[in-house]
Design a protein around this nucleic acid. Structure first.
Lengths: 251, 251
DNA sequence: TGCCGCGCTCTGGTATACCAGATACCATGA
DNA sequence: TCATGGTATCTGGTATACCAGAGCGCGGCA
């Protein structure tokens, strides 16, 4: 018997639905503030406000949303600085993941990784136009990074990068087309794979780290468009002060 | 004017109270399962169940608590494996923090760090008994690690390590007395400080990483006591299956 | 005609009532 | 005496009603 599990609370359903919606909407194209309404969501999803509220509470803690008491719930648009920090943390975690892959992953998995990249190479050569190739590469790129995390065998690493990936994906679309980053990225990935195959932990860790830090530096230089355009929102009324980050920051 | 902030919702109060309580209780001494009751908490804190539930929802997402529908809310005791993973992730983040300190922190901050360690040295030499010194060192140790995170200037790093520190602190008490780890730890810390002072990013990153990975290896070898004792809970009735970790783990 | 102030309404925060599944206990019969 | 099943009760999940602060608009007054 497959042991059915009743893990499907309305709260989790609402959480999944909202997160999917937020992930899908390209926040960084959307100029104006995106606001959520508890009662509207409640009506749309056909459940009461209670599970909606708990789902929103979770999303807020994850930093996808910010709720201002008696004002509204707003989808958060990360600032350039925050995105650079996200990528930096990502670099730290991926570096450790690469190290763990060297130490723990079987050769088969690493070989699979190379196959992943080669498959993309073969499939994407020539016959497609630039935009389509880049779109496809963006996915392959994320897949590569996620594969390394998964192969590390460290669940916590997977868990902690899960939300970071969502933000990475959102901005990857806009960064990948710039500055010939796709081509550079492939070179870096290949170098990482080679280090993994050589079972060179230090090299793999360093290459993985520097590869992602390269993206961080790129965003640092060319990501000014991420910070709020003063033009789109009228005057200074745009976003109500997004001063504090999501959690308490009590340190 | 100090800009009074109405950020004090009952939810946040309840969250803070519960987190403080969980942090305070030494989970790994407490043999039996610790269970929370929404209605009891509601009565104790003098608020309704709603904010309690939202606070519990947050704690669950952070992995401090696990709620089984219609069964109860249980304080989570991390397994050895999970703790090793926590320390591993910690190593990754601290390594990056050390790197950022080299690149960004002013000399004054780094000097402050050395003063922190020296002060402990001077204060703790000789006149105190072992237990007291270890207790004191445990705090100084955490302070050192937190200082590096803070000096990195990366808010996200501080945010992501905040909860990890709570778990680290909980088990540090039991690991620090073993195997002369305190003395070794001081040596490592000094080496890290020297690398920071030399502005040697690679060395600082590597030393910080390996220092914390050393703790991970130590727990891996000697941390079997962390996994549930079959003796304390009668038979197999102890904890209802803690199979999945807190978040969805959808990767 | 323009500015000020009162109040309506909208929104998130909180309290509470009710639902259903899980458990434990007890009565019953083999 | 012990297995069994039914029921009381306890617990988290959900729905809903109410509260108070923030915004906004309308009307009166200068």
């Amino acid at each position: 018997m497959p042991r059915i599990d009743p893990q499907s609370t309305f709260r989790d359903l609402a959480y999944a639905a909202l997160k999917r919606a937020i992930t899908a909407m390209d926040i960084y194209d959307h100029p104006e503030e995106i606001r959520l309404d508890e009662r509207a969501l409640s009506a749309d999803l056909g459940v009461s406000r209670t599970p909606i509220r708990e789902a929103v509470t979770l999303l807020e803690q994850e930093g996808f949303v910010r709720t201002l008491p008696r004002r509204g719930i707003y989808v958060v648009r990360k600032t350039k600085r925050e995105i650079v920090e996200i990528i930096t943390v990502m670099a730290a975690l991926e570096s450790m993941a690469a190290r763990l892959v060297v130490l723990n992953a079987p050769d088969d998995d690493i070989a699979e990784l190379r196959r992943l990249m080669d498959a993309f190479h073969d499939g994407a050569n020539g016959q497609k136009d630039g935009g389509e190739r880049l779109e496809e590469y963006s996915d392959a790129n994320i897949a590569f990074h996620q594969a390394i995390i998964r192969m590390s065998g460290c669940r916590l690493l997977a868990e902690m990068t899960e939300n970071l990936f969502i933000h990475m994906r959102a901005i990857r679309k806009v960064t990948i087309a710039q500055d010939n980053r796709a081509a550079r990225s492939i070179v870096d990935h290949m170098a990482i794979i080679e280090a993994l195959e050589r079972r060179d932990a230090e090299a793999a860790a360093r290459l993985a780290r520097d590869h992602t830090l390269g993206l961080a530096a790129h965003v640092e230089r060319h990501g000014d468009f991420l910070d709020p355009h003063p033009s789109t929102t009228r005057g200074s009324t745009g976003a109500p002060e997004m001063a504090g980050s999501s959690p308490a920051m009590t340190s």
